[in-house]
Amino acid sequence: MAGRPRSIMETAYADIKHRIMVLELEPGMPIDDISISKELGVSRTPVREALFRLSTEGLILSDSGKSGFFVRPMDLVSVSNLFEAHMVTARAIARLVAVRATRENLDEMKTAEQAVVRAIWDEDPAAVASTNAHLHRLEATASKNSFLESLALSIHDHGQRIGFLAFGGRTSWDLLRDHFSKVQGDHHELIAAYEARDPDLAEEIAGRHVLLFRDRIMAFMKMETVNDVNLGGDILSSARLD
């Protein structure tokens, strides 16, 4: 019985995190823990524990004055900072994976790569964002550096949320086909570089892949108007993504 409360908290955590990732809980939106606890059929305690855990991961913010929670906004300043961190960690991780990955790590990445391909073929934006994030989390694990892995996991959580916004919603899938063709090419070439034990090539491809994602986000921002997209923050900031 000792494990049951933890299981309930984990369920609440997974449910709330999914809502954040697919923007059911939109950036800047207050989170009503009472309503969520009723929807899940659990008490407030595991829900609040889940919210505190998500706040430590940076996906939600806590208003200590009102003891409330709200979804972390996605303003251009934070997105720009995210891509800076993404570029640094992706390149460092790629070098380490090229020299440290085991056969098991490589096989797991190949399986994850195929899951991304299936999600693209299914034209499922949520699955594309989640499977892509999973693939890159496996890379972080294969680096065998716990500090880099921890940072990368946080980056890919935030990146998954932005990815769903840019890959789903109002964007026609036809406009994304060229982008996804390049995504698949990068994934395939990156894993091949890992298998060849080539850290220089792996780093080059990883950096290119981050820029591809960044360019897709910038294209999305240009296509949508301020009134169409609510990031819950200051999207008119002068911050630049390049």
Rank of each mutant, 00 (worst) to 15 (best):
L231V: 09
D122L: 02
R240M: 11
S35I: 05
G168D: 05
A196W: 02
V77T: 15
N81R: 15
F52V: 09
P199K: 03
S7T: 11
L236A: 06
L165Y: 05
E139N: 08
D33M: 08
H158G: 01
I162W: 00
A152T: 02
V99F: 10
G58L: 01
M109R: 06
W121G: 11
G3W: 00
R137D: 08
D122M: 11
E49V: 07
V226R: 04
G68H: 10
H156G: 02
T56E: 12
D186W: 02
D215F: 06
N105F: 07
Q114V: 01
D15N: 10
L231E: 06
K66S: 13
D32Y: 04
I8D: 13
E204R: 13
M109P: 08
A142M: 13
S7P: 03
E195I: 09
R118M: 04
A98L: 09
N227V: 08
K222T: 11
G65F: 05
D200V: 14
N105V: 07
D75A: 11
G169Q: 00
V116E: 09
A219H: 06
L54M: 05
M21W: 03
L175A: 14
R53Y: 00
N227C: 07
P125S: 11
D186E: 12
R6W: 04
L51H: 08
M29A: 11
L148E: 05
G169C: 01
F167N: 06
A166G: 08
L138H: 05
A12P: 02
L76H: 08
G185L: 04
L51F: 07
F69D: 02
R170P: 00
L25K: 07
G41W: 02
V128R: 13
N132P: 00
V183N: 09
F70N: 07
M223K: 14
R100Y: 10
L236S: 06
M109F: 08
A196C: 03
G169N: 04
T171W: 05
A192K: 14
V116S: 01
S43T: 15
M87H: 13
D107A: 13
S130I: 05
D174C: 01
G159R: 13
K222P: 03
M74H: 13
D174T: 02
R100H: 12
T45D: 02
